[in-house]
Design a protein around this nucleic acid. Structure first.
Length: 317
DNA sequence: AAGCTAGACAACCGCGTTCCG
DNA sequence: TCGGAACGCGGTTGTCTAGCT
Protein backbone atom coordinates (compact mmCIF):
# COMPACT_ATOMS: atom_id res chain seq x y z
CA UNK A 1 0.00 0.00 0.00
CA UNK A 2 1.48 3.32 -1.11
CA UNK A 3 -0.65 5.68 0.94
CA UNK A 4 0.06 4.07 4.27
CA UNK A 5 0.99 6.46 7.02
CA UNK A 6 3.79 5.55 9.38
CA UNK A 7 5.28 6.86 12.56
CA UNK A 8 3.73 7.98 15.80
CA UNK A 9 -0.01 7.77 16.11
CA UNK A 10 -1.93 11.03 16.57
CA UNK A 11 -4.73 11.44 19.10
CA UNK A 12 -7.19 11.68 16.24
CA UNK A 13 -6.08 8.30 14.92
CA UNK A 14 -6.21 6.86 18.41
CA UNK A 15 -9.74 8.15 18.87
CA UNK A 16 -10.90 6.55 15.65
CA UNK A 17 -9.22 3.29 16.48
CA UNK A 18 -10.54 3.31 20.03
CA UNK A 19 -14.07 3.95 18.85
CA UNK A 20 -13.80 1.12 16.39
CA UNK A 21 -12.14 -1.17 18.89
CA UNK A 22 -14.74 -0.58 21.59
CA UNK A 23 -17.49 -1.31 19.10
CA UNK A 24 -16.04 -4.26 17.23
CA UNK A 25 -13.26 -5.50 19.46
CA UNK A 26 -10.11 -6.88 17.94
CA UNK A 27 -9.80 -9.17 14.96
CA UNK A 28 -9.81 -8.88 11.15
CA UNK A 29 -7.17 -6.19 11.26
CA UNK A 30 -6.87 -5.83 7.53
CA UNK A 31 -10.36 -4.40 7.34
CA UNK A 32 -9.79 -1.92 10.16
CA UNK A 33 -8.05 0.78 8.09
CA UNK A 34 -10.82 0.65 5.51
CA UNK A 35 -13.62 0.81 8.07
CA UNK A 36 -12.00 3.52 10.15
CA UNK A 37 -10.61 5.47 7.19
CA UNK A 38 -7.22 5.36 8.82
CA UNK A 39 -4.23 5.51 6.50
CA UNK A 40 -2.51 2.75 8.41
CA UNK A 41 -1.91 -0.86 7.57
CA UNK A 42 -3.81 -3.47 9.53
CA UNK A 43 -0.64 -4.63 11.12
CA UNK A 44 0.06 -1.18 12.49
CA UNK A 45 -3.50 -0.93 13.81
CA UNK A 46 -3.18 -4.25 15.59
CA UNK A 47 0.10 -3.21 17.16
CA UNK A 48 -1.24 0.12 18.32
CA UNK A 49 -4.31 -1.53 19.78
CA UNK A 50 -2.55 -4.35 21.53
CA UNK A 51 0.31 -2.28 22.89
CA UNK A 52 -1.32 1.01 23.80
CA UNK A 53 -5.07 1.34 23.36
CA UNK A 54 -6.44 -1.76 25.03
CA UNK A 55 -8.38 -0.75 28.10
CA UNK A 56 -7.01 -3.52 30.26
CA UNK A 57 -3.43 -2.35 30.00
CA UNK A 58 -1.47 -1.18 33.00
CA UNK A 59 0.70 1.85 32.45
CA UNK A 60 2.37 2.07 35.85
CA UNK A 61 5.80 0.80 36.78
CA UNK A 62 6.58 -2.88 37.06
CA UNK A 63 6.32 -4.20 40.58
CA UNK A 64 8.95 -6.25 42.33
CA UNK A 65 6.73 -9.30 41.99
CA UNK A 66 6.43 -8.73 38.28
CA UNK A 67 10.19 -8.35 37.95
CA UNK A 68 10.61 -11.54 39.89
CA UNK A 69 8.26 -13.42 37.62
CA UNK A 70 9.79 -12.07 34.42
CA UNK A 71 13.24 -13.17 35.45
CA UNK A 72 12.08 -16.59 36.51
CA UNK A 73 10.19 -17.12 33.30
CA UNK A 74 13.02 -15.78 31.19
CA UNK A 75 15.36 -18.18 32.89
CA UNK A 76 12.95 -20.99 32.12
CA UNK A 77 11.80 -20.29 28.59
CA UNK A 78 14.01 -17.52 27.25
CA UNK A 79 12.82 -14.49 25.37
CA UNK A 80 9.35 -15.66 24.56
CA UNK A 81 7.79 -12.42 25.56
CA UNK A 82 4.23 -13.15 24.58
CA UNK A 83 4.13 -16.17 26.85
CA UNK A 84 5.76 -14.26 29.68
CA UNK A 85 3.35 -11.37 29.17
CA UNK A 86 0.40 -13.73 29.47
CA UNK A 87 1.41 -14.33 33.05
CA UNK A 88 1.42 -10.62 33.79
CA UNK A 89 -2.10 -9.17 33.58
CA UNK A 90 -2.17 -5.78 31.93
CA UNK A 91 1.28 -6.10 30.41
CA UNK A 92 2.08 -6.63 26.77
CA UNK A 93 4.88 -8.61 25.24
CA UNK A 94 6.38 -5.34 24.06
CA UNK A 95 6.24 -3.94 27.60
CA UNK A 96 7.98 -6.96 29.01
CA UNK A 97 10.56 -7.07 26.26
CA UNK A 98 11.47 -3.42 26.67
CA UNK A 99 11.56 -3.66 30.42
CA UNK A 100 13.85 -6.63 30.18
CA UNK A 101 16.17 -4.99 27.66
CA UNK A 102 16.39 -1.65 29.42
CA UNK A 103 16.25 -2.56 33.10
CA UNK A 104 16.47 -6.18 34.04
CA UNK A 105 19.38 -7.11 31.84
CA UNK A 106 21.47 -4.38 33.37
CA UNK A 107 20.34 -5.24 36.84
CA UNK A 108 21.38 -8.86 36.42
CA UNK A 109 24.68 -7.88 34.85
CA UNK A 110 25.44 -5.60 37.76
CA UNK A 111 24.80 -8.52 40.05
CA UNK A 112 27.40 -10.51 38.13
CA UNK A 113 24.81 -12.70 36.49
CA UNK A 114 24.77 -13.37 32.80
CA UNK A 115 21.27 -12.37 31.65
CA UNK A 116 21.34 -14.92 28.85
CA UNK A 117 22.22 -18.02 30.80
CA UNK A 118 21.27 -16.75 34.27
CA UNK A 119 24.55 -18.03 35.58
CA UNK A 120 27.30 -16.10 37.31
CA UNK A 121 29.91 -14.71 34.96
CA UNK A 122 32.57 -16.38 37.05
CA UNK A 123 30.98 -19.76 36.42
CA UNK A 124 30.84 -19.16 32.68
CA UNK A 125 34.46 -18.10 32.62
CA UNK A 126 35.40 -21.18 34.59
CA UNK A 127 33.53 -23.38 32.14
CA UNK A 128 35.29 -21.88 29.17
CA UNK A 129 38.56 -22.12 31.02
CA UNK A 130 38.04 -25.82 31.50
CA UNK A 131 37.54 -26.31 27.79
CA UNK A 132 40.51 -24.19 26.84
CA UNK A 133 42.71 -25.93 29.36
CA UNK A 134 42.89 -29.11 27.33
CA UNK A 135 45.88 -29.39 25.10
CA UNK A 136 44.95 -31.23 21.92
CA UNK A 137 41.56 -30.65 20.39
CA UNK A 138 41.08 -34.21 19.21
CA UNK A 139 42.21 -35.63 22.52
CA UNK A 140 39.96 -33.23 24.29
CA UNK A 141 36.96 -34.41 22.31
CA UNK A 142 37.79 -38.01 23.00
CA UNK A 143 38.36 -37.63 26.69
CA UNK A 144 35.40 -35.43 27.22
CA UNK A 145 33.22 -37.82 25.32
CA UNK A 146 34.46 -40.68 27.39
CA UNK A 147 33.96 -38.90 30.67
CA UNK A 148 30.66 -37.50 29.65
CA UNK A 149 29.41 -40.85 28.44
CA UNK A 150 30.43 -42.38 31.72
CA UNK A 151 28.58 -39.70 33.58
CA UNK A 152 25.51 -40.23 31.45
CA UNK A 153 25.69 -43.98 31.87
CA UNK A 154 25.83 -43.54 35.58
CA UNK A 155 22.89 -41.22 35.46
CA UNK A 156 20.83 -43.55 33.36
CA UNK A 157 21.53 -46.40 35.74
CA UNK A 158 20.30 -44.42 38.66
CA UNK A 159 16.61 -45.06 39.12
CA UNK A 160 16.02 -41.51 40.27
CA UNK A 161 18.09 -39.77 37.68
CA UNK A 162 15.70 -39.78 34.84
CA UNK A 163 13.98 -36.62 33.83
CA UNK A 164 12.02 -35.50 36.84
CA UNK A 165 8.34 -35.95 36.38
CA UNK A 166 5.91 -33.16 36.82
CA UNK A 167 8.39 -30.30 36.57
CA UNK A 168 7.66 -29.37 40.07
CA UNK A 169 10.98 -28.04 41.19
CA UNK A 170 13.94 -25.88 40.38
CA UNK A 171 16.05 -28.75 39.16
CA UNK A 172 13.58 -29.72 36.51
CA UNK A 173 13.26 -26.11 35.56
CA UNK A 174 17.01 -25.91 35.19
CA UNK A 175 17.14 -29.04 33.10
CA UNK A 176 14.41 -27.81 30.83
CA UNK A 177 16.00 -24.43 30.56
CA UNK A 178 19.21 -26.03 29.50
CA UNK A 179 17.40 -27.87 26.78
CA UNK A 180 15.98 -24.58 25.66
CA UNK A 181 19.39 -23.02 25.67
CA UNK A 182 20.75 -26.03 23.88
CA UNK A 183 18.18 -25.79 21.16
CA UNK A 184 18.57 -22.05 20.93
CA UNK A 185 22.32 -22.38 20.60
CA UNK A 186 21.85 -24.55 17.57
CA UNK A 187 19.24 -22.50 15.86
CA UNK A 188 16.41 -24.87 16.42
CA UNK A 189 12.85 -23.86 16.21
CA UNK A 190 11.67 -23.32 19.73
CA UNK A 191 8.12 -23.03 18.63
CA UNK A 192 8.11 -26.80 18.60
CA UNK A 193 7.83 -26.49 22.32
CA UNK A 194 5.05 -23.98 22.50
CA UNK A 195 1.92 -24.83 24.40
CA UNK A 196 3.11 -28.28 25.31
CA UNK A 197 2.24 -29.73 28.62
CA UNK A 198 5.81 -29.28 29.49
CA UNK A 199 5.84 -25.56 28.87
CA UNK A 200 2.59 -24.95 30.60
CA UNK A 201 3.89 -26.86 33.54
CA UNK A 202 6.93 -24.67 33.66
CA UNK A 203 4.94 -21.49 33.43
CA UNK A 204 2.51 -22.50 36.09
CA UNK A 205 5.48 -23.58 38.14
CA UNK A 206 6.84 -20.07 37.94
CA UNK A 207 3.55 -18.31 38.30
CA UNK A 208 2.78 -20.33 41.37
CA UNK A 209 6.37 -20.20 42.43
CA UNK A 210 5.94 -19.88 46.13
CA UNK A 211 3.68 -22.88 46.19
CA UNK A 212 5.30 -25.14 43.67
CA UNK A 213 8.93 -24.21 43.65
CA UNK A 214 9.88 -23.35 47.16
CA UNK A 215 8.06 -26.25 48.70
CA UNK A 216 9.81 -28.72 46.49
CA UNK A 217 13.26 -27.25 46.46
CA UNK A 218 16.14 -28.94 48.04
CA UNK A 219 17.56 -27.06 51.03
CA UNK A 220 20.40 -25.70 48.95
CA UNK A 221 18.12 -24.36 46.30
CA UNK A 222 16.78 -20.92 47.02
CA UNK A 223 13.49 -19.90 45.60
CA UNK A 224 11.64 -16.72 46.21
CA UNK A 225 9.13 -16.47 43.45
CA UNK A 226 6.32 -14.14 44.38
CA UNK A 227 7.60 -13.37 47.79
CA UNK A 228 7.41 -9.84 49.03
CA UNK A 229 11.16 -9.36 49.32
CA UNK A 230 13.13 -11.39 46.87
CA UNK A 231 16.84 -11.87 46.62
CA UNK A 232 18.66 -11.42 43.37
CA UNK A 233 20.74 -14.40 44.27
CA UNK A 234 17.67 -16.46 43.60
CA UNK A 235 18.05 -15.85 39.91
CA UNK A 236 21.32 -17.71 39.80
CA UNK A 237 20.51 -21.05 38.31
CA UNK A 238 22.26 -23.79 40.10
CA UNK A 239 24.51 -26.52 38.84
CA UNK A 240 24.38 -30.15 39.76
CA UNK A 241 20.77 -30.52 39.04
CA UNK A 242 21.14 -34.27 38.87
CA UNK A 243 22.50 -35.13 42.21
CA UNK A 244 21.02 -38.41 43.35
CA UNK A 245 19.97 -37.02 46.68
CA UNK A 246 17.85 -34.40 45.02
CA UNK A 247 16.08 -36.97 42.98
CA UNK A 248 15.45 -39.21 45.87
CA UNK A 249 13.89 -36.30 47.65
CA UNK A 250 11.88 -35.35 44.64
CA UNK A 251 10.63 -38.78 43.89
CA UNK A 252 7.94 -38.58 46.49
CA UNK A 253 6.64 -35.36 45.04
CA UNK A 254 5.78 -36.44 41.57
CA UNK A 255 2.90 -38.42 40.32
CA UNK A 256 1.76 -36.74 37.15
CA UNK A 257 2.58 -37.97 33.70
CA UNK A 258 4.24 -35.64 31.30
CA UNK A 259 5.18 -35.94 27.68
CA UNK A 260 8.00 -33.79 26.48
CA UNK A 261 8.71 -33.22 22.85
CA UNK A 262 11.82 -31.51 21.70
CA UNK A 263 13.42 -30.92 18.40
CA UNK A 264 17.04 -31.80 18.69
CA UNK A 265 19.88 -30.27 16.75
CA UNK A 266 19.63 -32.73 13.91
CA UNK A 267 15.86 -32.44 13.63
CA UNK A 268 15.19 -35.79 15.16
CA UNK A 269 12.02 -35.46 17.11
CA UNK A 270 12.42 -37.13 20.42
CA UNK A 271 9.67 -37.96 22.78
CA UNK A 272 10.12 -38.75 26.36
CA UNK A 273 7.34 -40.00 28.47
CA UNK A 274 7.43 -39.84 32.17
CA UNK A 275 5.02 -41.87 34.10
CA UNK A 276 5.49 -42.14 37.79
CA UNK A 277 8.51 -44.33 38.34
CA UNK A 278 9.33 -44.48 34.65
CA UNK A 279 13.01 -44.54 33.78
CA UNK A 280 12.98 -44.33 30.04
CA UNK A 281 13.90 -40.76 29.68
CA UNK A 282 15.85 -40.44 26.48
CA UNK A 283 16.53 -37.05 25.08
CA UNK A 284 18.87 -37.67 22.20
CA UNK A 285 20.92 -34.86 23.56
CA UNK A 286 20.94 -36.34 27.02
CA UNK A 287 20.05 -34.65 30.24
CA UNK A 288 22.31 -31.69 30.09
CA UNK A 289 23.35 -30.34 33.43
CA UNK A 290 24.68 -27.18 31.89
CA UNK A 291 24.90 -25.34 28.66
CA UNK A 292 28.51 -26.37 28.27
CA UNK A 293 27.64 -30.00 28.68
CA UNK A 294 24.91 -29.59 26.14
CA UNK A 295 27.44 -28.28 23.67
CA UNK A 296 29.77 -31.15 24.42
CA UNK A 297 26.99 -33.62 24.03
CA UNK A 298 26.18 -32.28 20.64
CA UNK A 299 29.82 -32.58 19.74
CA UNK A 300 29.64 -36.15 20.88
CA UNK A 301 26.63 -36.87 18.69
CA UNK A 302 28.35 -35.33 15.70
CA UNK A 303 31.37 -37.45 16.38
CA UNK A 304 29.26 -40.57 16.44
CA UNK A 305 27.39 -39.60 13.30
CA UNK A 306 30.34 -38.38 11.28
CA UNK A 307 33.48 -39.98 12.72
CA UNK A 308 35.46 -39.35 9.56
CA UNK A 309 34.97 -35.63 9.93
CA UNK A 310 36.23 -35.58 13.46
CA UNK A 311 39.35 -37.62 12.95
CA UNK A 312 42.63 -36.04 13.78
CA UNK A 313 44.54 -35.08 10.63
CA UNK A 314 47.58 -37.23 10.00
CA UNK A 315 49.87 -34.23 9.92
CA UNK A 316 49.61 -30.47 10.26
CA UNK A 317 52.39 -29.40 7.90
C1' DA B 1 20.50 28.72 26.43
C1' DA B 2 22.34 25.36 23.35
C1' DG B 3 24.24 21.01 22.35
C1' DC B 4 24.99 16.34 23.58
C1' DT B 5 23.87 11.85 25.50
C1' DA B 6 21.45 8.12 27.40
C1' DG B 7 17.18 6.07 28.60
C1' DA B 8 12.45 4.90 27.62
C1' DC B 9 9.24 3.27 24.70
C1' DA B 10 6.43 3.38 20.40
C1' DA B 11 6.57 1.61 16.01
C1' DC B 12 8.47 -1.02 12.23
C1' DC B 13 10.38 -5.13 9.91
C1' DG B 14 11.10 -9.76 8.75
C1' DC B 15 9.93 -14.26 9.35
C1' DG B 16 7.35 -18.26 10.86
C1' DT B 17 2.78 -20.12 11.65
C1' DT B 18 -2.06 -20.56 10.94
C1' DC B 19 -6.14 -20.17 8.37
C1' DC B 20 -8.94 -20.60 4.45
C1' DG B 21 -10.45 -21.08 -0.25
C1' DT C 1 -2.72 -30.72 -1.04
C1' DC C 2 -1.31 -26.24 -2.17
C1' DG C 3 -0.78 -21.37 -2.23
C1' DG C 4 -1.83 -16.90 -0.69
C1' DA C 5 -3.54 -13.91 2.94
C1' DA C 6 -3.70 -12.86 7.63
C1' DC C 7 -1.85 -13.06 11.99
C1' DG C 8 1.53 -13.26 15.75
C1' DC C 9 6.02 -12.92 17.53
C1' DG C 10 10.72 -11.34 18.51
C1' DG C 11 14.36 -8.30 17.20
C1' DT C 12 15.54 -3.80 15.75
C1' DT C 13 15.06 1.01 14.75
C1' DG C 14 13.36 5.64 15.37
C1' DT C 15 11.76 9.34 18.13
C1' DC C 16 11.04 11.84 22.16
C1' DT C 17 12.57 13.62 26.50
C1' DA C 18 15.11 14.44 30.64
C1' DG C 19 19.45 15.28 32.51
C1' DC C 20 24.04 16.84 32.12
C1' DT C 21 27.86 19.79 30.48
Amino acid sequence: MVNVKRGVWTTEEDTKKLAFGSKHGSGNWTSVPRKTRLKRCGKSCRLRWSNCLRTDLKHDNFTTQEEDLIIKLHAAIGSRWSIIAQQLPGRTDNDVKIYWNTKLKKKLSQMGIDPVTHKPFSKLIADYGNIGGCQKPSTRIGSINKDFKSAMMLKSEEPHQTMPQGFTNDQSLETTRNNFLFNRAHGDNLSMLSRTDFENEMISGCALGEDRLSKTSSPSTPSSCSTSAFSWNDFLLLEDAFTPLDYQQKDTLVSKENVVTIQSWNNKEVKSQHASGSTDFQFSSSSHTSFIEAMLDQENEMFLSFPHLMEEPSNFS
